[in-house]
């Protein structure tokens, strides 16, 4: 039961994207279509799991003075391997993902899970935690990509869903959905919706804005 919580906790209650606001850069960049978002989600989940398991296995022997360098070296190597595999076996998708698979290295999500969880837990729970976080990230990515591809191009996974207007009638794609700002809006609305349902996720304000008593009048 406890293990199941480790897996499910990061998917909704402690989602890396909507609660911790990590991995936003890639969430903006690769969500113009479901295919790229799914590839990115799978790549990140696999890299996250592999890095968590490896780091958790050798956690007792990582000197704390160089632990971040060791973690980043391992993560970077795994990312390069993932990138090479995608370039070899999914070449057209790798062209569309361009540099964003490589940028998994800088995704705080991966380093964050390594540092916060894998360094203090045995490989089993570390793998589950990584899987949970990967799935949480994937879920958000796929939701955003679903909305953007559906309304931006009228397709899903490249298949036409909404009949696109060619002769004046039908659906006119919202080109705005394919631009980066739309991902910001969708993410913001998602976070809003999630926090309205789960009030516990609302952060207490860091400070209150006091009325400006020293306002100078002309």
């Amino acid at each position: 039961m406890k293990w199941l919580r480790v897996l499910s906790h990061p998917i909704l209650d402690n989602n890396p994207v909507t609660l911790q606001i990590l991995g936003i850069c890639s969430a903006l960049a690769v969500t113009t279509s479901l295919t790229t978002a799914a590839t990115m989600a799978v790549a990140l989940t696999l890299v996250l799991m592999a890095s968590s398991v490896i780091i958790s296995t050798i956690r007792r022997h990582i000197p704390s003075s160089i632990r971040l360098i060791v973690q980043i070296t391992l993560i970077a190597s795994l990312v390069v391997v993932a990138d090479e595999i995608i370039q070899a076996y999914a070449f057209p998708i790798s062209q569309r993902l361009s540099i964003f698979v490589g940028l998994i290295v800088t995704n705080c999500l991966v380093l964050g899970r390594a540092e916060a969880f894998a360094m203090h837990n045995p490989p089993g729970p570390a793998a589950l935690d990584a899987l949970g976080n990967g799935l949480g990230y994937s879920l958000i990515l796929l939701i955003v990509a679903f909305l953007r591809e559906l309304f931006g191009a009228g397709t899903l996974f490249g298949w036409p869903v909404l009949p696109v207007a060619t002769d004046g009638s039908g659906f006119t794609p919202l080109k705005f959905m394919l631009l980066a700002p739309s991902a910001f809006f969708i993410l913001g609305l998602l976070i809003w919706a999630l926090r309205s349902v789960r009030q516990g996720q609302i952060e207490p304000p860091d400070f209150k804005i006091a009325p400006d008593t020293e306002e100078r009048r002309p």
Binding site: H61, P63, I66, I69, V80, V81, I85
Partner: peptide, 21 residues
């Protein structure tokens, strides 16, 4: 041990990345 871990991690990663490439 710090040096040994640093060296071993780099060596293993080098081999894995080069082999994949």
């Amino acid at each position: 041990k710090t040096l040994a871990v640093a060296f071993l991690v780099s060596a293993v990663c080098t081999v894995i990345v080069s082999a994949t490439a």
